[in-house]
Simulated scan of single mutants.
Amino acid sequence: MQLYNKLSAKERAALIQEAGEDRLTLSFYQYAHIKNPQIFRDYLFIHWNKLDVLGRIYVAKEGINAQLSVPAQKFDEFKIFLDQIEFLKGVRLNIAIEQDNMAFLKLKVKLRNKIVADGLNDETFDVTNKGVHVDAETFNQLIDDPNTVLVDMRNHYESEIGHFQNAVTPDVDTFRDSLDIIENDLKDHKEDKNLVMYCTGGIRCEKASAYYKHKGFKRVFQLEGGIIEYARQVEAKKLENKFLGKNFVFDHRMSEKISDEVIAQCHQCGKACDTHVNCVNDACHLLFIQCEDCAKEMDKCCSDHCKEIIKLPYEEQKKLRAGKQNSNHIFKKGRSENLKFKKKLDSSIRIEEETV
Rank of each mutant, 00 (worst) to 15 (best):
D188H: 06
L51A: 15
K89Y: 11
F248I: 06
V151E: 12
K207Q: 13
G162C: 09
T174R: 04
D188V: 00
E240P: 02
D144E: 08
A208S: 03
E235D: 11
C291G: 13
V59F: 08
G55D: 08
H133K: 02
K333Q: 10
E229F: 04
R253M: 13
Q268R: 02
V277H: 11
V59T: 03
V134T: 05
L223I: 00
D260E: 15
E256R: 02
C269F: 11
F28L: 10
K333C: 14
A13R: 04
K319Q: 13
K79R: 14
D346Y: 15
G90Y: 09
Q222R: 03
L142C: 02
G323W: 13
H329C: 08
Q2W: 13
D52M: 12
T174I: 05
I309T: 01
Q30P: 00
I228S: 12
R253G: 12
V280Y: 06
I310D: 14
K193N: 01
R154G: 00
A236W: 06
K319V: 11
A72H: 13
K10A: 07
Y157L: 06
F139K: 01
G226Y: 00
K6S: 12
K61V: 07
D251A: 06
I97M: 01
N94A: 13
I351P: 04
Q38S: 13
D192G: 05
A208H: 02
T25F: 12
I203D: 08
A231G: 05
G245M: 15
S159L: 02
Y314N: 08
N241E: 03
G162K: 14
L244C: 09
F217H: 10
Q67A: 13
V132W: 01
A32S: 14
Q265S: 13
E261Q: 10
A60S: 14
Q165D: 05
I228H: 07
V220T: 10
T169A: 06
C302A: 12
T355C: 13
A167T: 01
G225K: 01
K311G: 11
K246I: 03
G119D: 15
A264M: 06
K89G: 14
R154V: 00
R232H: 13
K215T: 00
H285V: 14
N328F: 06
S259Y: 02
L339S: 08
Y212S: 01
I181N: 14
V356F: 03
L51V: 06
E11F: 09
Q17N: 10
L320V: 04
A283T: 06
I85Y: 06
D346V: 07
F217T: 05
Y230C: 05
K332T: 07
N147K: 00
G216H: 09
H267A: 10
L195K: 01
Q99N: 07
N247C: 09
H305A: 15
V356N: 06
S178I: 04
S259A: 04
C291N: 12
G334V: 08
D293R: 07
Y31D: 01
K215R: 10
D346C: 06
K6Y: 03
T174L: 10
D274W: 04
L82R: 12
